[in-house]
Amino acid sequence: MAVPAYASPLERTWHYTYLVICGLIFFFLIAPIIVIIPLSFNAEPYFTFTEKMLSFDPSGYSMRWYDMLLTFGMQEPQAERGWSWWMDVWHHATWIDVAKNSIIIGFFSTILATVLGTLAALGLSRPEMPFRRAVMAVLISPMIVPIIITATGLFFFYSKTGLAHTYPGIIMAHATLGIPFVIITVTATLVGFDHSLSRAAANLGADPRTTFFKIVMPLILPGVVSGALFAFVTSFDEVVVVLFVAGYDQQTIPRQMWNGIREQISPAILAVATILVFVSIALLTTVELLRRRSEKLRGMSPG
C-alpha cells in the first residue's frame, strides 16, 4: 500500500513509522526462531555468539551437538563408525529412540483423528444434523480446555483402566487432542462444497460409496490432509499428557527436550530445535500448497 497523493507530511511520516513498527513486530516473531539455528553450530557449550562465530571463523562452528544427538545413550560411542556403530545408534541412541516413539505415536494418532474427524465433519456439515452446535462444542473442546486439565483427567482415568504407560493410551489421548483441528479444517473445506455435485453423481447412477470416493473425497482431500498435518503436529509437539501418563518406554522428542531443558541445558537441545524448525518449515510449505490447491479446486481466488 502506497501513501495516497493527498497525504500530509505528518501522515507520510506516520506511514513510514508504521512500516518500521510492522517490521519490528515481524522481527520479534521470526528472530527467536532463526537465532537458534546458527547457535546450534556453536563449537563452545554456550548459548550466545562467541567472538569466533561473529568473525565467521570456521573453528567457531562445529557439528559436535548434532553428533551428540547420535552418540548420547549409545553403548559404544567411541567405536569405529561403521555398520555396527550405526546399528548401535539405531537401537540405543536416546534421541533416535524418542524420535521413533514420536513418529509411531504421531502416525497412529493422526490416522485415528483424521478418519474419525473427517467422518464427523461430513455429518456436522449436514444441515439435518441434530444438536449440531452442542455436539460441535463438545468435539472442539479438547483444543480449548487447558492441556493440564485433560492430562490430570487422563491420569485418573488411565490409572484405573490400565491404559497408563501404554502406547494405545497415549495414541488415544493424542488423537483426541488432534481431532478439533481435523474438524475445523474439514468443515471449512465443506463450507464451499457444492452438494449438487454429489446429487449429480447419484443421478448418474453412482451408489453412495462411489460418490464419496470418486466425487466428494478428491474435493475435500486438501482439507483432510491439512487437518491430518495439524493433528500430527499436535501429537508431535505434545508433552504434558506424555509427562502425566507415559511410561519410560513411551518418551517422545518433546518429552526428552523437556528433560534436557530442566536438568542440564546444552546446545544439543538447540540442535534438536533446529531440526524441528526445518520440520515445521516443511509442514508449513505443504499446508500452504494444499490450501492453494483447495482454493483452485473450489474455483476460488487463485492463490
Binding site: L112, L116, G117, L119, A120, L122, G123, L124, R126, E128, M129, P130, V135, V138, L139, S141, P142, V145, I149, T150, T152, G153, L154, F156, F157, Y158, K160, M172, A173, A175, T176, I179
Partner: peptide
C-alpha cells in the same frame, strides 16, 4: 437424513466421550 448425519458423527462423539469427557468426569 438426520439419522445418517448422526451416525457419521457418532463414532467420534463416542471416542471423545471415552478419552476426554469421562476422564474429566473422573477428575
Amino acid at each position: 437424513a438426520k439419522r445418517r448425519a448422526f451416525l457419521l458423527v457418532a463414532p467420534l462423539f463416542l471416542f471423545v466421550l471415552i478419552t476426554f469427557v469421562v476422564p474429566i468426569g473422573q477428575m
